[in-house]
Design a protein around this nucleic acid. Sequence first.
DNA 1: CACAAACATTGATGTGTGTCAATATATTCT
DNA 2: AGAATATATTGACACACATCAATGTTTGTG
Lengths: 111, 111
Amino acid sequence: MKSSEVTCCTPVSDGLDGRQAVELADLLKVLADPARLRIVSMLASVADGEVCVCDMTEPLGLSQPTVSHHIKVLREAGFISSEKRSKWVYHRLVPAQLESVRAALAVRQPV
Amino acid sequence: MKSSEVTCCTPVSDGLDGRQAVELADLLKVLADPARLRIVSMLASVADGEVCVCDMTEPLGLSQPTVSHHIKVLREAGFISSEKRSKWVYHRLVPAQLESVRAALAVRQPV
DNA sequence: CACAAACATTGATGTGTGTCAATATATTCT
DNA sequence: AGAATATATTGACACACATCAATGTTTGTG
């Protein structure tokens, strides 16, 4: 801490408390992986919004278990939803979750 | 990959290539830490936009070397800029970098 | 000059995680 | 029922990283 005599700068009053910071960090950790970002990108760019794992392993260059792992992480964080139909599991984006992260990253102007 | 007979879903054409994914992931990794998020929050909420390390260690509950480490990571990623004046080093936010991350996270609608 | 304050650097340590091989489960087809 | 395909799970491993104690460096003060 600064010396009591000369002030260094204005005292800090952070708008983000510990819990909020951990929660947001957890969501960002999920997104902070190249493979998962590309999965999100795939789901966002595909026409009908649905993609199964079998079509992602090759473009990602990852093994099937690894892709399944990333899918699970994304789903548990609320970024995608999954539905099993017949032999395949279809995954689609949950735009609201991505938007909530975007909103949390907005710099709020001091009045 | 899917069998050649029955199509699983539309072929994927991800809009995010490997390099872009790694670059964005690297930026997100920097933000995906509670301490660094709180530092960013502090810099965003303080009146004159400047905070020195000595005033962040106590509210963060972290040691001075740890705070210095996080500051360095944030600076090297372009999220903050630092200026040494007399005995103290003042840090301020670079809003453009945060905005670029926000923009990259935007879900672009398929036409 | 000697001491203290602010910050940076180094080294060590524990924890988390991305990846794959192997295996398990579920579904479809013959 | 048996085989093949799609996906999930488990276990193991290597690597990254957040943290702190100790120390170094710079700047101001007695």
